[in-house]
Design a protein around this nucleic acid. Sequence first.
DNA 1: ACAAAAGTGTTTTAGATACACCCATGC
DNA 2: GCATGGGTGTATCTAAAACACTTTTGT
Lengths: 236, 236
Amino acid sequence: MKKNTFKKHISVDCVIFGYDEENDKLEVLLIEQKNPNKKGHQSFIPQFALPGDLVNDEENLDESAQRVLNELTNVSGLNLRQFGCFGDPMRVKQEKDKEWLHLYRQDPDARVVTVAYYTLVRKEMIRPMPGSFAQNVVWKNTKRIPALAFDHNLIVKQASSNLRRDFDADMFAKELLPQKFTLKNLQNLYEVIFNTTLDKRNFIKRIKKEDHLLELSEKQKGTMFKPSKLYRFKVK
Amino acid sequence: MKKNTFKKHISVDCVIFGYDEENDKLEVLLIEQKNPNKKGHQSFIPQFALPGDLVNDEENLDESAQRVLNELTNVSGLNLRQFGCFGDPMRVKQEKDKEWLHLYRQDPDARVVTVAYYTLVRKEMIRPMPGSFAQNVVWKNTKRIPALAFDHNLIVKQASSNLRRDFDADMFAKELLPQKFTLKNLQNLYEVIFNTTLDKRNFIKRIKKEDHLLELSEKQKGTMFKPSKLYRFKVK
DNA sequence: ACAAAAGTGTTTTAGATACACCCATGC
DNA sequence: GCATGGGTGTATCTAAAACACTTTTGT
């Protein structure tokens, strides 16, 4: 009895968290699967899914995640972090995913082990546009994720817990706020990520001690009431 | 130009940290590769390597890690934790590894993406015995890891940092000390894992507050000097 | 009695939390 | 002048760190 005869594929999946500064929301970038209109596939029901696809020959995993994300959503240059590997043989065997696999994969029955990446960006920083087999690209609130293709709901869940565990101002905050921002902006960011509320006096004390902020002489323009001072991050 | 034609394999590799209570050391379990004595392979130079091998069809990754560890070292039932995935196309292309691949793999040139697992056990709890392509099984001090096959030195390094980051009494301590132990035993464990020294009074305060310990009426036997009280973990 | 490790508290410091009023500005 | 969010300080509590002497036991 042979034990290693089935074809196996490697894929990457990307969980892109988008911070919506306007509305104090945390969202996830999803694609909507495209119906290629091949004959005999009138029954195809598109699903939401994470941007993800097979790894190419000669391409390392981190590069692959960047390429795949770009092909499907036209987003590039993000600081993707690997956080786990999902390889249950059943993860691509569910009925709901059969048709998509037959439409898009040369070996629809092959096992697919996927390497999962995540990152966090300010929503306004990227302009996702659908590409490849993505019919559409959408943001969904992390509190209301729809049913996703394959095991992607599980992947999103694990990405969320990794995000909170590893969140740290140094790595992310610089990409999550406009260059010039108010302390309130920064506090809102922390509150959304950790799904909590913070006392502004204590928050300011904490982050001022970290000493990454530079107070500018400018103030906000066009506010309805008292404008706030602006800050930016110190350059290392 | 086809981009997904090369054969790809999935493997698992296990980093088993062994706590040596007697000598206050932290070690890693390695195998020594076996020379199968096939003709034309007199030049084979065995290397040290992590216990690891290809994932079977129909086997999920966690199960696979357990099976592979058992086949190579006859160790089973450990609480292995996945911590990363290594898939650089070059990770199995180094000259030093060519011969082994040709001896043991049906597709020696195939790309191999490996899923890495680690755990921490008390050395005395397991009796590793070589099996399969392991000529020998050895413990090596984490401070003096030799050159390993493939990218296994990198994998060990990342496992070490995950071990420290995720170490927590609840998960490990129960398997790392004898049922009845002294506070000094527990302190030694922490000191070895975090490679530091602790003040015993502060340490005791800290762990007593956690309230996982039960003070027994017994004392150590056969000590050279004053025997210490024994403790065990509370049952949840 | 002596050598060795066990056992034990207090003080200091730093960080986190709780909490409320005045101020500056745009309208 | 008033509505709104900006801006600010103190007191308390908790956790962590520094620190040294006495006690118990085996030999």
